[in-house]
Design a protein around this nucleic acid. Sequence first.
DNA 1: CGGTATTTTGAGTATCGTCAAGGCCAGTGG
DNA 2: CCACTGGCCTTGACGATACTCAAAATACCG
Lengths: 266, 266
Amino acid sequence: MLSKENSLTSPTVERCGLSDVSALHGLGGPLLTELESICTKATFQPGQIVLAEGMAPDYIGCVRQGILRMQKTLYDGRQQIVGLLVEGDMFGHVIEGPASFAIEAAGETSICMFKRKPFEALLNRSLKLERLLLLNTLNELDRARDWMVILTNYKTSVRLAGFLVVLCTRYFGVDHIMQVGSGRLELNIPITRVDLAHLLGTRVESISRAFGALTKKGVIEVKTPYLIEILDIEKLFEMAGNEDLESVKALMQWCQTDENQSLQGQ
Amino acid sequence: MLSKENSLTSPTVERCGLSDVSALHGLGGPLLTELESICTKATFQPGQIVLAEGMAPDYIGCVRQGILRMQKTLYDGRQQIVGLLVEGDMFGHVIEGPASFAIEAAGETSICMFKRKPFEALLNRSLKLERLLLLNTLNELDRARDWMVILTNYKTSVRLAGFLVVLCTRYFGVDHIMQVGSGRLELNIPITRVDLAHLLGTRVESISRAFGALTKKGVIEVKTPYLIEILDIEKLFEMAGNEDLESVKALMQWCQTDENQSLQGQ
DNA sequence: CGGTATTTTGAGTATCGTCAAGGCCAGTGG
DNA sequence: CCACTGGCCTTGACGATACTCAAAATACCG
């Protein structure tokens, strides 16, 4: 039962390069160099705790690869995930104060860690860095509120549809989550059913039935628990209450383009 | 049915002073003066739209009095409230871009409006102002995630308890929401049952039954739809899954103190 | 006092939570 | 190679809770 044990065993640590972190684009070379000088890379195994709840971390983190979950453990032991962190996301209170949520690895992940003190010093000197953080935070706030709208749906299948739409749009291009081939549109579900239940505020069984419901409606096909094919993306977006048809069309067009390229390759 | 009509009729406009806005404390006199020079005050009636969804506002707002709701209208006409704005809260994308959510007055409210252009100019010149905004935003992000945890409860009565706890803690001291007298602890519910349903992701009927459930458990007593008395605040916090007993104790102590003062006044 | 909006209550249906059982898959050891 | 084991996912049955529609009760306001 405790195979996915929450251990604090020391992760692997090494040096890291930051030039390919999208969140830090626009900072300019010198600043990046300075950031690199206070940065170390670490990797975590599934279930390892990256940052415990209530601890004031001595570093700011930035996800390089893999997926982390930001979660809170309730008084009765239930866990609630308030968000997933993917490639490029930053975490750890940028300014100060204890963390309200724990950060755990949902799979094998690697992150960059900036030592707090020098990071804050840098922040006090660089307008660009501070502005970057502000924009980042505002963006996260917006996404958090969008996620609230998804969470407040009565039917689990609708919440699941919302999650899948988020995978298609926000997590587009991250970690091979989305794959397109010969007219097919496939999604890699990056977390277990249990995590999905904690994320959508329900139970594993309901998640399972929700996948079943979407399948019955012809929206998706569950190939393996972690690989589904989207059969009708328009209906999926519609179910999720997402009227932003532009993103659907852009997505479909992108698929088409890719498909064409695949065909050309034949 | 449309008495609470969403109208865009022009609100009352006048000059405003900022010295008593808690969110702006620590800015220093000169900065405050500059802010005041680009600031106008406006008042809105219940139901009036302060900022429409998808519009890029030409001002940044700051609530002075009353309550606003931040909401999204779904494709099927359902409305979802993602947060309430009270005294001191700021809104309107600080940097740029269209608003993802509409802002509407939930009651009679007055706000400060800063013209965007000069505000951004000021932001570019003042480290303090930018830092203030960053801290503010980080704080809001934390609150948004706490709210998510409340929203993902199965039972409506638990979500309602969570909301009442938020009223007791976060909105403590705002707009006479909380009143203490002769050992009694009374809460003014600042929004209608419909808004409460939209906020908690459920229907009006369920909200009504949730109040009934809390009453049956002896946690509260509904005096009028907008005024309830808290009979057992400890149980209320426990129901909401809030193990932060310190805040409860502080709250109760505060009540006690106030009660003593009341008794002394006799 | 009357009229309207809001809130509450009731009855029937749908969905979810819970508990239990079964199936699938990978890893292990014989 | 096969059986066994443990973890994860799925399915089924039943009680609990929420949604829907309808109607009654209450509060609000002129």
